[in-house]
Simulated assay, not measured.
Amino acid sequence: MDKLIEQFEVTLERLKTYLPERKRPFYKSIQIDDVRGALIYGLRGVGKTTFLINKIANSKRNFLYFSADHPLISSLPLYEIVSEIFKKGYEGVVIDEIHHANKWSEHIKAIYDDYPDKTIWISDSSNLILRKSVSDLSRRFVQFRIPLMSFREYIFLTQGILVDPVDPFNIDKNIFVILKDINILKLFSDYINGGIRPIFTEGEYCSRLKGLLEKSIYYDIPFYVSSIQDKHLRVMNAIIGYLITSAIPTINISGMCNEWDLGKEKLYNLLYVMEHSELINIVKKPGKFTYTKGAKIFLSDPSMYGCFKGNPGSAREAFAVMCLKEKYEVFACKDDRDCDFIVDGIKIEVGGKRKKSKNADFTISDDIDIPVRNRIPLWILGFLY
Score class of each variant (00 low, 15 high):
M304R: 09
D340F: 10
A68S: 15
Y154E: 10
F156S: 12
Y385A: 13
N170G: 05
N359V: 10
M236P: 00
P71C: 09
G310N: 09
D69R: 08
P222C: 13
M256R: 08
L233K: 14
F144G: 13
D2R: 12
H107M: 04
Y41P: 02
A68V: 07
S246Y: 07
S314K: 03
K210L: 13
D336V: 10
I368L: 00
R131I: 04
E265I: 15
L378C: 08
V350Y: 05
W121K: 03
L148T: 05
L213K: 07
S133V: 01
S74A: 08
E9I: 10
A68Y: 07
S126T: 12
E265C: 04
P147E: 14
A101K: 02
L12R: 10
S74I: 04
I282S: 01
H232N: 14
N170D: 13
C307V: 14
I184F: 03
R373T: 11
K358R: 15
N174R: 12
Y79E: 04
I244A: 06
S59I: 02
S216C: 00
E97S: 06
L378G: 06
S216I: 00
K16D: 06
E317G: 13
G211Y: 08
E6K: 15
E84V: 01
I297N: 09
F169A: 09
K296Q: 06
L78G: 03
Y328L: 12
L262A: 09
I129C: 01
L185G: 03
E214G: 02
Y272K: 14
R140F: 14
V35T: 10
Y115A: 06
E259V: 00
T119C: 05
L137D: 06
L4Q: 07
G255Q: 14
T119K: 05
G42H: 05
D301S: 14
D96Q: 07
I108G: 03
L213H: 09
E6Q: 15
P71T: 03
G211K: 12
Y115E: 04
R152C: 03
V372R: 12
K288F: 15
D220K: 02
D367E: 01
S138R: 14
I98A: 04
I175E: 00
L267Y: 10
K186L: 13
S123L: 05
E326R: 08
K173T: 14
S138T: 13
L15D: 15
P286F: 15
S226A: 13
M304F: 12
